[in-house]
Each structure stands twice: as structure tokens, then as C-alpha cells.
């Protein structure tokens, strides 16, 4: 697991806070419109929007909110949409387990991480207990 940093060649499309339930809806709609702009078809747009919705919900439910950084950049010949979710929450103690289907946190739900991972082209996670979690997903056409 390595720290997640941004490439300086990427274009910054904005940083948005997710503090309320409305923010979850608002920011995922922003993600969808950027996905559309990047040229993704309906199915791809829906995949990335759904994936980030899971991530935003995690931040809201488990970390008391967080920040979402949206960027655009070239990844191996593709124009990719890059979404990074940063929170200062309790962190995930056992990431490997959290990434398996069927993992639940005791609230009756999992982190939705394995599902989100299946929906995107690249998935990175960095988490330190008591410091916070950063999850980055990338999607291209």
C-alpha cells in the first residue's frame, strides 16, 4: 500500500466537500457530467457514478464526511477521469478483508469496495488507522 498523490500533469476539475447527504447526490451528479464530457457512453457513466456513490457514502457513514478531488489526465493513451476521496476518519484496519465480497462492518453493510472496484478501470486505496482513508478510482472511455 502506498500513499496516493496526484500527477502534476493532471487537470484539476474541482474539489468538493461531502458533508451531507445532499452533497453525496450533488457531487455524484457532477461526476456524471464530467464523465459525459470525457466522452463516456451511458453505461460507463452509470458505472463511475455508481462507484463513487458507494465511496461517498462510506465517507459520510464511517468518517463523518470528506473531500472529493476530481481530475482529468492521460493514463496510458486514455483520457481518464480521476476521482479521489479523502477523509480523516478512523481508517480501515484490515483492507484485504474489506475488499472481499460479503464483508460487513457490523452495521449490516460492507464498504461496497469490491463492487466499486469492479465498476472502474483502476482502483487504489490507502488507509491508516486513526488517521484516515484515501480511495482513488479512474475511469476512461
Amino acid at each position: 500500500m502506498h500513499e496516493i498523490v496526484s500527477d502534476k500533469n493532471w487537470e484539476n476539475l474541482g474539489q468538493y466537500p461531502v458533508q451531507t447527504e445532499y452533497d453525496i447526490v450533488k457531487v455524484r451528479q457532477i461526476v456524471r457530467s464530467y464523465a459525459k464530457e470525457t466522452g463516456m457512453g451511458i453505461v460507463e457513466q452509470t458505472r463511475i457514478t455508481t462507484a463513487v456513490s458507494e465511496l461517498f457514502r462510506n465517507m459520510y457513514n464511517y468518517a463523518g464526511g470528506g473531500e472529493v478531488l476530481i481530475e482529468k489526465g492521460q493514463i496510458e493513451d486514455h483520457t481518464a477521469l480521476i476521482i479521489t476521496c479523502i477523509d480523516q476518519g478512523p481508517g480501515i484496519p484490515d483492507i484485504e478483508r474489506a475488499m472481499t465480497d460479503g464483508f460487513t462492518t457490523g452495521m449490516g453493510m460492507g464498504y461496497g469496495l469490491p463492487g466499486a472496484k469492479r465498476l472502474v478501470d483502476r482502483f487504489e486505496i490507502y488507509s491508516v488507522v486513526n488517521k484516515g482513508t484515501t480511495v482513488r478510482v479512474m475511469k476512461w472511455r
Partner: peptide, 14 residues
């Protein structure tokens, strides 16, 4: 249900 939604739900495992 829209096709894109159905596809995503299946991929999510739901």
C-alpha cells in the same frame, strides 16, 4: 429499469 442500471447492479453484485 434502465439497461445501464441493470448492468451496474449485476456488476455490483446486487
Amino acid at each position: 429499469m434502465q439497461p445501464a442500471v441493470a448492468i451496474t447492479l449485476v456488476e455490483l453484485g446486487l
